[in-house]
Design a protein around this nucleic acid. Structure first.
Lengths: 118, 118, 118, 118
DNA sequence: GTGGTCTAGACCACC
DNA sequence: GTGGTCTAGACCACG
């Protein structure tokens, strides 16, 4: 797996795990219905306590990114279960940042130029 | 003062205080070199532990939004000391959000439409 | 057979098998004294461990929905052996739900309207 | 507090805690914005590990029944944040039970009689 | 003191 | 072997 924990990061470990796996799923690196590492294996691989991975996996399931089959393992969910939510989340963030920039006197044109320069 | 603490907010209280005062300063509601409430007074007004206000004020000073005069109080710093930093921060955030949206298959045009609709 | 396992369902697989077969029996799709698939065959058909099917069949026998003839297979029991139990179970559930709704301030009339609208 | 754990119950302890506190809140026994016992205190009172209470409280917050203030404690949320969801949940359950009963040949009239007899 | 996170180690149901 | 739950005990940030 391509997951790395950053111990300098102030966020809790389980959040980092969530984010990393979200990334792998959203970018299509792990396809739908593919198995992801077992709680124990990932724990060993990252030298982390299994409970911490467990917490991350449970949250990922709650968010609709994976589904869990007891006695079998965890599998990535079809994109339909998270795609919409995720878009809305990011447009919400975009909205907040734009509000802040406009409040600070940045014009819409400047923002659009910035988007185009990407 | 126009500060309200939201206890249901997940962020620590001192961060909320920082954000609220930043807002008052950035929007020009408190002009440069104006005195802001003393640690003690604000603590009483918000029914909050003075240590919490103290922590917020220290951070605000570190960020360049206020300056402290020993024995006299805290004053709003001139905008030159924070304006640039703040713009860069928000453009950094904007950058991150746009990257995410593009990764998810949202086109630049959609993003620009969204900005224009504001 | 018309059985489908849903791996995203939180319940254990053997419970799903029980429920599905109960349904086929209760709705009369498999008549009394009809043979149901052998443990082995159903296991193969559903790509499931035979132990899981075995557990489901044992429970179905305990509940009176099927009876087992050693060396010959499993057969649907006559409705007399489960019909009464089942009705009582569901009226018990109905009772519990109605209690909760009333506790929450929902009137009997609202509940009756809901039943009639079905 | 009026909470009792039933060790014969097969459900996990944290679910029992959730259900018990939900009840206290829904029935108005603990009013909105009232403090509920701290994680540690309730753990001691019930002779349960604090982590288990913690899990229950986090779920209760996620469900909108309580809100948490770090360093202060947990408080019951205003009913607006859960009342609607809860009604929908129970009407959903009611719907399922009624479907089952009708499938078994129970008439609407019988069901309505049952409701009226309560 | 309060909640939030983490570790280590255990037992269980399920497959 | 797999996930789910629980205990015991620890450290941290917050107030």
């Amino acid at each position: 797996m391509l997951i790395q924990i950053d111990y300098k990061d102030k966020r809790p470990i389980y959040e980092q795990v969530i984010e990393k796996i979200q990334n792998l799923i959203v970018r299509g690196i792990i396809p739908a219905d593919e198995k992801i590492p077992s709680v124990r294996n990932l724990a060993i691989e990252l030298s982390i306590n299994p409970n911490t991975i467990q917490k991350a996996y449970q949250e990922l399931e709650r968010l609709g990114y994976i589904y869990t089959v007891k006695g079998r393992g965890n599998y990535v969910a079809p994109s339909s279960s998270w795609k919409k939510d995720r878009r809305e989340d990011y447009f919400g963030e975009l909205d907040a940042v734009i509000c802040e920039l406009i409040t600070m006197g940045v014009s819409k044109e400047e923002i659009i130029d910035f988007v185009n320069s990407k």
